[in-house]
């Protein structure tokens, strides 16, 4: 086989893989959108489910998911960023730090149901927070922490050392250097990573199953201590647990559609932030 042929074959396989993924993604999106768009209406988005979830909308589930994701963000983003700053900027790069880093990477691979059970034991039972928005948000926070820490560390690593050394050589303290000359350049990467982590958390079912999500609760939660409906769990119920699955199928697709749009909006925000910061930097 000639080199040229080998190259063509190689590129062909690469191209095919890309197209295959896009094709599958397209099929999924087409399926959900075509079957779900029919039920989308102002009423669907802004009213609670009625008549055993066969009619009405998904308003409480939308609000529940948004609230829980906000708790997740408030908990996981600051802690994750601070931990990443410590690991990358302050901790001496010895065995201990390497072990901690490896442990964090491994945490990202723990099945989400395990986080769910852990959240049940820690937040719901031991800390007495009960099944609530707070417990579920904190559990999802634990789930996203490894992603946030890793993304933040990568973002900090991508800031050239010359920015640090240039600042330190001016007799500027390490803290000031990090705060004013390193972090601003890492923020696009940090926020992108954090938002991608959050968008994954927003779609998780297992971690909220035991920690706060309600089967049916046709009102929005009145406090962080209440149970709540969430889009992914609602979708799960409509697809597998409902007594008349055939009847609620369009609603299930509509719910999936709204969930995907929410996640898409989060990702668009991440892209927008990255774009804005890049523009500011090159100004």
């Amino acid at each position: 086989m000639t080199d040229n042929l080998k190259q063509k074959l190689g590129f062909g396989i690469l191209r095919l893989s890309t197209w295959l993924i896009l094709f599958i993604l397209f099929i999924i999106l087409y399926d959900i959108i075509s079957k779900g768009i029919g039920v989308i209406s102002w009423e669907f988005l802004t009213t609670a489910p009625r008549s055993g979830m066969t009619e009405g909308g998904i308003w409480p589930a939308v609000i529940g998911t948004v609230l829980v994701t906000m708790i997740t963000a408030l908990f996981a983003v600051p802690i994750g960023v601070f931990a990443a700053i410590y690991l990358n900027e302050y901790a001496s790069q010895g065995k201990l730090t390497r072990t901690i880093r490896m442990a964090i990477r491994n945490l990202a691979g723990v099945p989400s149901i395990v986080y769910g059970l852990f959240g049940l034991a820690l937040f719901v039972k031991n800390l007495g927070l009960g099944t609530s928005v707070l417990s579920a948000g904190l559990t999802l926070g634990l789930l996203t922490l490894p992603v946030t820490i890793t993304a933040s560390e990568e973002a900090l690593k991508s800031v050239p050392n010359s920015y640090r050394h240039g600042s330190l050589a001016l007799g500027v303290s390490k803290w000031h250097t990090i705060r004013h000359n390193v972090l601003p350049n890492a923020i696009p990467g940090i926020l992108t990573g954090a938002i991608l982590g959050l968008s994954r958390a927003a779609g998780e079912t297992a971690p909220i199953l035991f920690t706060g999500a309600a089967f049916f609760l046709p009102r929005i939660p009145d406090s962080l201590g209440s149970q709540f409906m969430a889009l992914p769990y609602h979708l799960y119920i409509l697809s597998t647990q409902h007594h008349s699955i055939g009847v609620v199928r369009p609603i299930a697709y509509g719910t999936a559609f709204v969930l995907i749009v929410l996640v898409l909006i989060l990702n668009l925000v991440a892209i927008f932030i990255r774009y804005r910061f890049r523009k500011n930097l090159s100004k």
């Binding site: 050239p160 010359s162 050394h165 240039g166 050589a169 001016l170 007799g171 500027v172 303290s173």
Partner: peptide, 19 residues
């Protein structure tokens, strides 16, 4: 060390302006 470095300026091999 921070006080010390205020007294001593340093210019590096590759120009390293901040962004």
């Amino acid at each position: 060390v921070v006080e010390l470095r205020k007294q001593i300026g340093m210019v590096f091999q590759d120009p390293n302006p901040f962004p």
